[in-house]
């Protein structure tokens, strides 16, 4: 237990709500990004998977949204301390996109329109843990929340769920992405409170 703050009681949520340590519950959907929101034309939108030997596989908007999709209901946890429960998404499982890709990679760098990057272990993107999401709450994903499509990896802090995603780069060795270079954790498990490098 930390230093007790004299006279602080705090506001407990309903006791049955389980949040990761240090998080508080919000019913809004806050926006967090490092720069302007890019506006992306669906006609020129592409999603590209690149392997460690430079092989590419790509999808147009039409092709991606024609793939079998899933409805997803998950809690999300932002490193800036808010959590939002039971959010509804629709998207294509990442494993569908990687199904025919031959790779020995253990890590992935997600790349976004606008230049954002974030790194993840490949195994965290497989087995029903990650999607390319293009709908939120039954409507097209708004640009400020990452539309037209974002990576959705709800079991990690939400900066790993790259907004405006345009591709996945498979890598043999881990490399830090945008926030990871700026001092945030390479893995980012909210339940172990891995906010910053060294946590």
């Amino acid at each position: 237990m930390g230093i007790v703050s004299p006279g602080f009681f705090g506001r407990r949520g309903s006791g049955d709500t389980k949040l990761p340590p240090g998080q508080y519950l919000t019913h809004d959907f806050p926006v967090l990004s490092a720069g302007p929101t890019p506006r992306i034309d669906l006609d020129s939108w592409q999603f590209v998977v690149t392997t460690e030997i430079g092989q590419r596989k790509q999808w147009s908007w039409q092709e991606l949204t024609s793939l079998p999709s899933e409805d997803i209901t998950k809690d999300i946890h932002c490193v800036t301390k808010w959590s939002k429960l039971g959010t509804h998404w629709k998207g294509v499982p990442v494993e569908t996109l990687l199904a025919d890709v031959e790779t020995a990679a253990d890590y992935v760098m997600a790349h976004s329109y606008g230049g954002y990057t974030t790194n993840l272990p490949l195994e965290d993107l497989l087995n029903g843990q990650a999607w390319i999401a293009y709908q939120y709450d039954g409507a097209p994903l708004p640009p400020e929340h990452g539309g037209p499509a974002r990576l959705l990896v709800p079991h990690l802090y939400f900066w790993k769920s790259a907004k405006w995603v345009r591709g996945l780069e498979l890598m043999l060795a881990d490399e830090p992405g945008f926030w990871e270079t700026a001092g945030y954790h390479d893995y980012g498990d909210p339940w172990r409170e891995q906010r910053y490098q060294g946590d």
């Binding site: 930390g2 230093i3 007790v4 703050s5 602080f8 240090g22 301390k81």
Partner: peptide, 13 residues
């Protein structure tokens, strides 16, 4: 990080 006497804590930036 604020911590109450019973161990409840919360954080803000």
């Amino acid at each position: 990080k604020l911590t109450a006497e019973d161990g409840y804590s919360t954080e803000r930036s």
